[in-house]
Amino acid sequence: MDDGLRNELSKQGVVVVKLEELYNWGRKNSVWPLSFGLACCAIEMMAASMARYDLARFGAEVFRPSPRQADLMIVAGTVTKKMAPQVVRLYNQMPEPKYVIAMGACAISGGPFKQGYNVLKGIDRYIPVDVHIPGCPPRPEALIHAFMTLQRKIDAQKLTGPDRARHLNADLPSEFPVPLFGEHDLVPSKNPNVWRPAVVVR
């Protein structure tokens, strides 16, 4: 259907959409985050859902305490090595489609605590991350921006074809191995299927 006809119909009060658009429209406006705070960023995450910033405007105010009911995991704060297996396990427990926002410098790379012996140098070593928000901590506006970025990302996902969304592609994994506590460090210290060191072009 061409755009002219569609516009004409919408003026008449008839909305015509593709199934893909309707599906994504519904999903992107009802992202339920997992209520799961790790550190300082969790307070800003709460502030984003409270009175002044009001995350409810984006359909994402329903913080679910159980991963089984959540669509989105906001990794808000420093992921320590003691906590990393639990974070991966929570991710595995979430049903598809699921998304991850790495909120703050610590979740991205270890941030100011990067040199710590018990600090994981970025959660993307074990699970795939959809949106990164820099900041220490990011302001609630930054989290809202991340939400809007995620909404755009969801909106662009395909239902069919080779580049269809992950949850519709049975070949792609939806669970990732949980690292084990070793004698000196986590085993393994990263998941090479998810994360590789940055390639530097000079």
């Binding site: 790379s109 012996y117 140098k121 000196h184 460090d185 210290s189 990263k190 060191p197 940055a198 530097v200």
Partner: peptide, 8 residues
Amino acid sequence: PDDYEYEP
């Protein structure tokens, strides 16, 4: 533990 991969 030596878990520093190269980062730019």
